[in-house]
């Protein structure tokens, strides 16, 4: 109930401000371009390369969506209202996470036109990888949002929040590079931590429980840290 109240308020305020509209248009413009360009260049009825590249655009877009979540409350002192109301930090974080996830899913839903376009021209289009790809994108979004929510709790400056979030996400993206360089256990560990290696599996149509668990645990860890950080204001 209280989580839903936070979620609704947060979702509404996304659309009161220009941020959501700007991120939506930029994302759709870039993904539209990617879709057209990749289709023309490869002449291959697959969505995999488009979705793979779209994930990088999402990496850049999500911190912009998450940066204000807690930072703005701290800056405008509305955090005093939330923290002095009978609502726990976990509920605040959960409500905000769900609001941003819902917005993110709306954004993804707007890209469903591309598989529909391909499917209408190719009668035996394989929907499997598309469905698993979108599942992967949602899980990836959970991971992005949880990191962004954590960094938003760190600072009352939205820009600082966004940049810290970019940094952390890029790092987790680049962990995947290690497998080509380090042929040992350490390289293996880094590869396992890579968000994008796991995401690529989904795009190939593989739904691996290990990958799902990884994303869920990854998200919960960051959300937990965000909650503790928000709570710590009360006992620090």
């Amino acid at each position: 109930m209280k989580i839903l109240a936070i979620m609704r308020k947060e979702l509404e305020s996304y659309f009161y401000s220009p941020v959501a509209y700007i991120v939506f248009s930029a994302f759709l413009l870039i993904v539209g371009y990617l879709f057209w360009f990749i289709l023309i260049a490869s002449k291959y009825a697959s969505l995999e390369p488009t979705l793979y590249n779209a994930a990088f655009v999402l990496l850049l877009a999500t911190p912009v969506l998450t940066m204000r979540l807690i930072s703005e409350e701290k800056k405008n002192k509305t955090i005093e209202l939330l923290l002095t109301s009978p609502i726990s930090p976990a509920e605040i974080i959960a409500g905000k996470f769900l609001a941003c996830l819902l917005l993110y899913i709306m954004l993804l839903a707007l890209t469903l036109q591309y598989p529909l376009v391909i499917a209408s021209y190719s009668p035996n289009f394989d929907w499997g990888p598309v469905i698993s790809g979108y599942l992967g994108m949602i899980l990836l979004g959970c991971a992005f949002i949880s990191v962004g929510l954590f960094t938003s709790t760190l600072s009352e400056n939205q820009i600082v929040s966004a940049i810290t979030s970019f940094g952390i996400l890029l790092l987790f993206w680049m962990f995947g590079f290690a497998k080509d360089v380090l042929d040992n256990a350490f390289g293996q560990i880094l590869e396992n931590l890579s968000l994008f290696e796991r995401y690529a599996d989904f795009l190939r149509g593989i739904i691996d429980t290990g990958n799902i668990i990884f994303f869920v645990v990854f998200t919960l860890i960051w959300l937990f840290m965000a909650t503790r950080l928000l709570e710590s204001d009360r006992w620090r």
Binding site: I6, N76, L81, P86
Partner: peptide, 26 residues
């Protein structure tokens, strides 16, 4: 509690704000 700076959301209407506060105050 009324803090030094009124903890209001600038983008909400008065009524929707009070509605929201009412919800989180159970």
């Amino acid at each position: 509690y009324l803090p030094e700076t009124p903890p209001v959301y600038m983008d909400m209407t008065v009524e929707s704000y009070l509605e929201f506060v009412g919800k989180i105050k159970e």
